[in-house]
Every structure is written in C-alpha cells, then in structure tokens.
C-alpha cells in the first residue's frame, strides 16, 4: 500500500526533476516488499497521468513532462530483478506502440506487468511500423498482441496496425490501451473481432488471467 504522503513526496520530486529522491523512494518501497502491480499502478501510472494533466493545464512545462518521463522510464528498471524472477507460465505477448506513437512508457509498463504474471513480454518500443510488427509476430508466435496509444490523433495509425495484424493473424487476441482513450475512440476497437480495450493495469491482469 502506497501512502498518500509517499505519493505526494514522490510526485513533488518527480515534477522538480529530483531523480535521486525518486530513486530512493522507489528503492525503499521495493525493500519493504511492495506489491509490484501497486508500484506500477499507484505510483508510476498515477503520477504520469497527473503529469499529463498538469501539462495540459499549463501548471508545468513540456520540459518538466519530458524529465518526469525520463525519470519514470529509468525507475522501471529498478523493479526488473523482481519482475524477471517470476516463474514462467509458457505464454508470450508482443507489446508495441503503433506507428508514429512515440510515448512508450505505458507500453513498457504493460510488458512488465505481463512479465510479472509469468508471461514473456516482448516490447517493441515506440513508433513500430505495422510491417515490422507482423514480422516479429511471425517470429515470436505470441499468445496475444498488445498495442498502446497515447496520442488520440494517432488513432488512424492504430487502426491500420490492427488491420495489418488481423490480415495475417485473424485469430490473434489484441489488447489495446493507453491514455489516448480518455478522449473516446473505444468504438474503434469494438469494430474489430478479438480486440479488447483495457483501461487499466488491473483490467490487464484480469484479462490475461482469463487468456
């Protein structure tokens, strides 16, 4: 359980760019045996959503936002020893951002949560062309594909990505999520068979446990 005072302290350090303070807070939480899903959802995800909102409302600059992203990405690495120690269950997922989508923290977190649940989460990173994604899927043969979208205007790229994947792998399960869907667009996902919108990391876990 992350106390509100710890969250506030972390957010304040994150916004001020105090990298080592953020690092210490996360290290301490890990040392105290925090549930990693909670660390991801209640600290990393919550704070990054708040950073996005603060930028939208002109409370912080784009530079603050970039720095917060950079710090968060580096902190994800701290959890890796625990994440990759989880027993494997023999399932694989390919996680990616669609073409033209350059915000990759969310996708990276999804891949980590999958790893935490014993999956092999192959994260392809930002701005992946659909053709490259298809090639990788052919090589890895995953049980599901996850697509992350942060900027709503990239929804056309996401649709193209879904179409390309579905053409070659019509029975592939697709999980789709990201901040972009705060502004709508889930209807786009519903149009595709075996494609599911996943609004949160909790939902992601529920979904993969049923997979």
């Amino acid at each position: 359980m992350i106390e509100e005072s710890v969250y506030e302290k972390y957010l304040s350090a994150l916004l001020a760019g105090r990298r080592s303070e953020c690092h210490d807070i996360v290290q301490k939480l890990l040392a105290n045996g925090i549930d990693l899903k909670e660390l991801y959802g209640k600290l990393f995800q919550r704070s990054m959503y708040q950073v996005g909102e603060l930028w939208e409302n002109n409370r912080i600059t784009v530079a603050n936002e970039h720095l917060a992203t950079s710090i968060t990405e580096s902190l994800l690495n701290l959890a890796y020893p625990s994440i990759f120690a989880t027993e494997r269950i023999g399932k694989k997922a390919v996680i990616s951002c669609s073409a033209n989508e350059f915000h990759q923290v969310g996708g990276k977190m999804v891949a980590d949560i999958l790893e935490l649940n014993g999956w092999d989460g192959h994260f392809l990173g930002a701005n992946t062309p659909p053709e490259d994604m298809v090639q990788y899927i052919q090589e890895v043969k995953p049980d599901l594909v996850g697509l992350s979208l942060s900027i709503f205007s990239n929804i056309g790229h996401l649709e193209r990505c879904i179409d390309v994947v579905k053409t070659d792998f019509p029975n592939m399960d697709l999980l789709i999520g990201g901040q972009a869907f705060r502004w709508g667009g889930t209807d786009t996902i519903k149009r595709h068979s075996r494609a599911e919108y996943v609004p949160s990391l909790d939902e992601l876990e529920r979904s993969i446990k049923g997979a």
Partner: peptide, 10 residues
Amino acid sequence: TEKIRLKGIE
C-alpha cells in the same frame, strides 16, 4: 533533441 531538453533542465 530529447537529450538536449533533458540536459537543459538537469
């Protein structure tokens, strides 16, 4: 430019 921006702050 991403690196430049971060340097500008840090």
